[in-house]
Design a binder for these strands. Structure first.
Length: 240
DNA sequence: TAGGCCATCTGGTCCT
DNA sequence: AGGACCAGATGGCCTA
């Protein structure tokens, strides 16, 4: 991990991560078109299940850890169980005797020091599990190929995809606002834009049609969007 | 086999 | 002092 230069990450299926990062604000409209495809390409194209490869298993012999999936890799399993491998025991012993890094707090009694270290490790482990849970939550709400046959998004891909998804939604919202404002204008209604409360994005919220406010003739309304084809006018443009 | 991704440990720093 | 957060290091697993 640490040996990898920043920005050198690439998508699981070979899609360079730079592609996601470089998606500018005016590019996410295009992204919206192929969003599903992009998301699918970001998801691992493996045939195996998400967790099958890693072989998650619940383990918490100490009892002070939340029963969250934990990797069963030999060394990692030993660590997560609160036990230390032989080498790590040696390293710990070295530190305890003041020969290794971390020997500064050697004033503690060895048993107390070890207990503290294990406690800190467990806390950090729990913290990272919480972080991963949050990432899982994020994966659950961003659209991509959720399928048992598709491996889950990597952490970096999840974050980048989520960012682009938010930008895309903001774009759609903005387009909707402009259309509604125009429609209100066409109906002789005072657009409530100025008095509208601010949304979390700092923009004025526009309330859609009042009851009975019809769209009106399609060609008339949608003509204003001829330059930037709106999905809302798609049915109009398709008319012969 | 190299590269990507990940979990975990660890020490440092900051905050309460 | 203890906890949260962070970044570096390490090693395992998987895929191309």
């Amino acid at each position: 991990m640490s040996s990898r230069p920043p920005g050198a990450a690439s998508g699981p299926s070979g899609a360079p991560m730079a592609e996601l990062k470089s998606l500018s604000e005016d590019a996410y409209l295009a992204l919206s078109q192929g969003y599903a495809a992009a998301a699918a390409s970001l998801a691992y194209g493996a045939v195996r299940g998400p967790e099958a490869a890693r072989g998650y298993c619940a383990q918490d012999p100490g009892g002070d850890l939340p029963v969250t999936p934990a990797p069963c890799a030999p060394a990692a399993a030993a660590e997560s169980s609160g036990e230390q491998s032989g080498d790590e025991e040696d390293a710990f012993e070295q530190r305890r005797q003041g020969r290794g890094p971390g020997a500064a707090d050697g004033r503690r009694r060895p048993r107390e020091q070890r207990s503290l270290r294990l406690s800190v490790n467990a806390r950090e482990r729990r913290r990272m599990h919480d972080l991963n849970d949050a990432l899982d939550g994020l994966r659950a709400v961003i659209p991509y190929a959720h399928s048992p046959s598709v491996r889950k998004l990597s952490k970096i891909a999840t974050l980048l995809l989520a960012k682009n998804y938010i930008l895309m939604q903001a774009q759609a919202l903005d387009e909707m606002r402009r259309l509604v404002a125009y429609l209100n204008q066409g109906q002789g209604l005072a657009a409530p834009v100025a008095a509208a409360p601010l949304t979390p994005f700092g923009q004025a919220a526009v309330y859609p049609f009042s009851a009975g406010a019809a769209l009106g003739p399609c060609p008339d309304k949608c003509a204003a969007f001829s330059g930037t084809p709106s999905a809302l006018c798609k049915h109009c443009n398709e008319k012969p």
